[in-house]
């Protein structure tokens, strides 16, 4: 299995499309960090206004942790899009390029090949988020410095620097798991077509539909909401709550996990039954 995953990673590494996400992050992050460093005063003022009556603020609230906390909001739609670039290609591209005529005639089970492709997509997803963390936390620390993280969300939580590092790492870990669910959804679509664009559009479309259901205040949508996977994307926010709501995190990951297992189950059924005609 490791050999198969190695193969899939070689394929992902060889496709230029795989680097779009990394290039995008490398362009976007310096821009955002630069924006924070030169225009962060306004943000600082807003925070100070919120906290001024209660706390005495010494120094700057704006640091790499706060910047990362804000940047992580890109997880709602931007990062999912970048994740789908590899997952969408995963199965569909091999079908379109005729690679399956070579690989699926060997004495290796289709299931193993499918699992290795999914694992490689997960590794790509994790690397993408780690790269994002490297920029926002690593380079961000150099540009904006570090300090306490102040989170305003149903109250005020102040995390000292050592705690902030741990919570950030935990939050990124949760974000990776969320994005792996997105990758699995896209992967499922990838088994159904021989065109990589379809799975990407399908996945982003479902995410947008999910956000719409969540944001439109209609009774019917409120009933559907618990079944919309997008509702549980915010699990990474729970890393910044005190105390950490482990039960809530477990529930959200459970729902996302169930979606992932279902998507993989469908992908397996489709792929094992698939006639290779290309």
């Amino acid at each position: 299995m490791l050999g198969l995953i190695h193969n899939e990673l070689l394929v992902i590494a060889g496709r230029w499309r795989s680097y779009i996400g990394f290039i995008g992050i490398s362009i976007l992050m310096p821009l955002i960090l630069w924006g924070f460093s030169v225009g962060g005063e306004e943000l600082h003022r807003d925070y100070a206004r919120e906290l001024g009556g209660t706390f005495m603020i010494v120094g700057s609230i704006l640091n790499s942790f706060l910047a990362t906390y804000i940047i992580m909001n890109t997880l709602w739609i931007h990062i999912p899009f970048l994740v789908t670039l590899a997952a969408g290609d995963s199965v569909a591209a091999d079908g379109a390029n005729g690679i399956f005529r070579i690989t699926l005639t060997r004495s290796v089970s289709r299931f193993k090949i499918l699992v290795s492709k999914l694992m490689a997509s997960y590794i790509y997803t994790a690397l993408l988020l780690i790269f994002c963390a490297f920029w926002s936390l690593g380079i961000g620390s150099i540009v904006l410095g570090t300090g306490d993280l102040i989170v305003i969300d149903n109250g005020i939580l102040i995390l000292d620097e050592s705690q902030a590092w741990v919570r950030m790492a935990f939050s990124f870990l949760l974000a990776i798991l969320v994005m792996c669910m997105v990758a699995t959804l896209c992967f499922m679509f990838s088994t159904m077509t021989n065109n990589a664009v379809g799975p990407i559009i399908g996945t982003i479309f479902l995410i947008i539909i999910g956000y719409m259901i969540m944001s439109i205040p209609l009774e019917i949508f409120e009933k559907i909401e618990p079944y919309v996977f997008v509702k549980y994307f915010n699990v990474w926010w729970d890393a910044f709550k005190d105390p950490i709501p482990w039960g809530e995190i477990g529930k959200k990951l459970g729902v996302l996990g169930a979606y992932s297992v279902t998507c993989f189950g469908v992908a397996t059924y489709v792929f094992l039954k698939k006639d290779i005609k290309t």
């Binding site: 070689l10 394929v11 060889g14 496709r15 390029n97 005729g98 690679i99 005529r101 070579i102 005639t105």
Partner: peptide
């Protein structure tokens, strides 16, 4: 070898 031989062209 089924029909045309297709491989990962970038490798």
């Amino acid at each position: 070898l089924i029909e045309r031989a297709d491989f990962h062209k970038h490798l």
